[in-house]
Nucleic acid binder design. Structure first.
Lengths: 104, 104
DNA sequence: TGAACATATGAATATCTGTTCATATGTATT
DNA sequence: AATACATATGAACAGATATTCATATGTTCA
């Protein structure tokens, strides 16, 4: 029946497992979650994000870099400001799946 | 327009943000991801999980405890064995959302 | 009861992670 | 050019995390 071999076959390959874990890691920190919610439907400057998230400018900037490296956010520069937004449609879906899960 | 206040209103409350991050944290480690895939559709003993995941018995047991505390897995005892399975339908959905995201 | 087996647990450790603080970089304004 | 403003960055630090090793707990079976 459900033997070990069968399960092994259906297991994603190592690299996929790592990438998947990596993706979820991006969503595993409260500051990053708040940032993502902030720029899910609108683009927003670092300053505004900082105020909304209620953290320091530096901490927000560091986390934006992390999210940028993971290609979850994109940005454009306008004068002195840098304006970020979520670059991936899936992010909203994954967040709301998670939200649905915890509120039951 | 998209003013700061409006975004703040739509922000989940602090506690929800934390719980959400906490949920994703559970999925942010490769060993745990493998464990969850292993017992997503079948229940399985710790010994079998250990072989499939390719880690040590101790490491798997520690991670199962973490997943158990997060209520993502459940278990039943059969003789000397303990048999685990995923306790939450949402887990499969969230995992496949993530998988869809990374494979594009 | 004793041996073998399956799982859990605690301590120790190395690594990773997020924040803070100070400061650098880059842009606009006067 | 000088100043003010917005953001980024690097070093340092504290706390969290995953694994390993040794061993404890609990169960079956001879």
């Amino acid at each position: 029946m459900d033997n070990i071999e069968k399960v092994k076959e259906n297991m994603p390959v190592e690299e996929e497992v790592f990438e998947l874990a990596e993706l979820f890691k991006m969503l595993s920190d409260p500051t990053r979650v708040k940032i993502l919610y902030t720029i899910l439907d609108n683009e927003m400057s670092v300053g505004d994000i900082t105020e909304i998230v209620g953290s320091t400018q530096s901490a927000v900037s560091h986390q934006l870099r992390v999210l940028k490296q993971a290609r979850l956010v994109k940005y454009r520069k306008v004068g002195k400001s840098v304006i970020y937004s979520v670059s991936d449609e899936h992010v909203a879906t994954i967040l709301s799946m998670g939200m649905e899960h915890i509120s039951e």
